[in-house]
Amino acid sequence: MSEIHISPSQNGKAPALPMTCLLAALLAACGQAPTAGAPQAPAQLADAPQVVSDLDATQGALRPAAVTDPYTYYNFTGTDGVQTLMSTGEGVCWLAKVGGNLNSNSDYLQVYHSQGQWKLNYHSDSSDPVSGRVYCVKWTAFKTPTVTQPARWISNGFTSIANSCTSFNKDTWWGDAATYISYVGGDVQGIGGVYVSQSTSGSKSSTMTAVACATTSKVYGGAHSLFIGKPSSNDLPQFWGPGGVGVPYSTAYKTGSYRAVSWGPSTVEMAPTDRAFCYLSTLWGDFDAMIDEAKVYRSTNSAGQQVWKLSVYDSNPGGNKGIGAYANCYMLTQY
């Protein structure tokens, strides 16, 4: 039987990666070099959840599309909300859509686990609501044909905060785990956002970076790491990406990350949903209207196949920096 474990972070030092180069270039455009900051816990929210269907926007608890569907999804729109999702013993959840007017240091969307349950928090300081989507996938969807007793571990949350045109880097788990965005908050404008660099070493940390680039703004970032496989093997996770599929020892660096930007292409097709799950690994831009968004979602392509797609939308395309996002797709079969 597989082991399911909620664990603190591994120790390690993150290497320089291509995403780091992108981040450095964006910060140079802002006129500042990265500096360290201090993480800050999110505020507590009142119980006021609004859960709607992924397909028809009707209110109520969500159900999978079919009995055999391993995915569950939750849409939400509002100014305050707390929602319990599924148990950590049943599966893993991630923040698949970030949308709305993120222009206050107190605005945020967050997925986390506590006392064995995945939970969702969101808050907006203004009358303009934030919106988002959470996907969860059951542990039973993952296969490890060469590992008889695989570990299935999910980290605690990693959090960072950036102030006034600075960035703050946070080491996450080593590169033998996949690291994904689970928390976005603050005044997300310009190049401000959350950036994950997936390590290409099984014994060095991936990193998550929050970036702020406005005189008085703060940006909060958060991530979780997922490990499935044989502990201490240093085997790198298998991904599906634009540079290749999940052959043994393929990595996010080799397969590449999917990219969508509001100036085009704004929507890209990614992996089949029965082969991988896809998550946001980086997002940035001008989130200053309710319809602004970056998201991954399931869709049926022209061949009738259900696939993941990455999409962004900017209501003010003539704005400062537009909106952009990267996504990685973690294979459901790991070794």
Rank of each mutant, 00 (worst) to 15 (best):
D176P: 03
G89A: 14
L62F: 06
T77N: 08
S206Y: 01
P39M: 03
A38R: 05
M86E: 11
T273C: 04
S233L: 07
N101Q: 08
W173I: 05
L102Q: 02
V247P: 00
T215G: 10
V98L: 08
E90N: 14
L280W: 04
G285M: 01
G318C: 11
A260V: 13
D292H: 02
L332I: 04
Q149R: 10
M86A: 01
P34I: 07
Y73D: 10
L27P: 00
T172R: 09
R133D: 03
K170L: 00
V51I: 15
F158D: 04
Y279W: 05
A36Y: 02
A252K: 09
V296G: 03
Q40F: 01
P231K: 12
M86H: 08
W174R: 09
T282Y: 01
Q305P: 00
Y135T: 04
R275N: 14
G241A: 06
A57W: 15
Y279C: 06
S126Q: 15
G246E: 09
A65G: 10
D80A: 07
G31F: 04
K138A: 15
V268D: 01
A294F: 00
K254R: 13
T273D: 01
P237C: 07
G319D: 03
T273I: 06
Y108I: 12
A210S: 15
S225C: 04
T172K: 08
S199A: 06
V111M: 11
N163P: 02
Q305F: 10
V111F: 06
E3K: 04
Y313M: 07
D171A: 14
T282K: 14
L27I: 05
S232P: 00
T144V: 12
I228F: 02
V67F: 14
I6D: 11
G221A: 07
